[in-house]
Amino acid sequence: MKTILLTISILLHSLAPSVSVSKQDGPGEVIYRVHSIYIYNFIKEIQWPDTYNNNNIVIGVLGSPEMETELKKMAAARTTSSRKITIKQFKSVAEVDKTCHILYLATEHSDGLSTVLQKVKGSSMLVITNKDGAAKFGSLINFVSEGGKPRFEMNLSAFEKSHLKYTQQLKTVAITVN
């Protein structure tokens, strides 16, 4: 049992490396930074179909200028498999299209999840939300807080429909939802 807990602890630390926090950062900035680190690690732990692997990784953000800012900082500092990461901002659900690998829906746009899922149906887009219960309604990954610590839920049936493949390591550290 100790070995399993140690392994899970190591996996969690590898998925969410330490975050630098300054005295000027408020709690919102810290959580956006943590979420951007998670998203970067999701890129490494998820495999898109071959047709999605011929250009940059595109992360769309619906709402949340703060999250967009953190993702842009992350994208400027990192690449993955020699592919650049670009950020695309959407101001409304109506603007969302299928050009992204990942779409982050800010909490204030979570009510539009069902519309977004209809718009991207048939694509292999990783839809990420940040609202309690959103994984049960079709979000592939949903950020949650458990015991005051950031965690994430994975909707396994939504992953299957999206044709995205995830590593066992990612599944191991997630809270799974069907």
Rank of each mutant, 00 (worst) to 15 (best):
I8G: 04
D97F: 06
A76S: 15
D111C: 03
E146P: 00
F90Q: 07
L140K: 09
M1T: 06
A106R: 01
I46E: 06
T51D: 15
P27C: 04
L6R: 02
N55Y: 07
E153W: 08
G147D: 06
F42L: 13
K2P: 02
A134G: 02
G133Q: 08
I39T: 12
L140M: 06
S114L: 04
S82Y: 09
E108D: 15
V173Y: 09
F159L: 14
Q169K: 10
I102E: 00
I8Y: 11
T115C: 03
H109I: 09
S145A: 03
V177M: 08
E45K: 07
F143I: 04
K91N: 15
I43D: 11
K171I: 03
S81M: 10
N130I: 01
G28K: 10
S124Y: 06
A77E: 15
E70Y: 06
I57G: 13
E45C: 10
H109S: 12
G138P: 09
E70R: 07
S14K: 08
D25C: 02
G148L: 06
V120P: 02
S124W: 05
F152R: 13
Y40N: 07
V127C: 07
T176P: 08
T176N: 12
Q47P: 05
L15G: 15
A94E: 14
L105V: 00
F90I: 01
K119S: 14
S110G: 02
M1Y: 07
E68P: 14
D132E: 12
T86P: 07
S14N: 14
V19Q: 12
S9H: 05
P49E: 12
D111Y: 09
M74N: 14
V127D: 00
I102Y: 00
S20V: 05
V177P: 02
N142D: 03
E29C: 01
P150M: 11
Y32G: 13
G133C: 02
T115V: 05
G28F: 04
G26E: 11
Q118I: 00
S157T: 14
I31S: 06
N41Y: 07
T7G: 04
V144A: 09
M154Y: 04
K121M: 02
V120D: 03
K161L: 02
G26R: 01
K165F: 11
Q24K: 10
L105T: 00
L170R: 08
A94H: 08
G133N: 03
G133P: 01
R33M: 02
E70C: 04
G148C: 04
G28Q: 11
A76C: 14
S145C: 03
V58I: 12
I141L: 00
V30M: 08
Q169S: 15
D132N: 15
L15Y: 10
G122H: 05
P17Q: 12
S14I: 00
Q118M: 02
S123R: 09
I8K: 07
H35S: 10
V93P: 14
Q24D: 15
A16H: 10
V173Q: 11
D25P: 02
T3P: 03
T129Y: 01
I57D: 06
K131N: 11
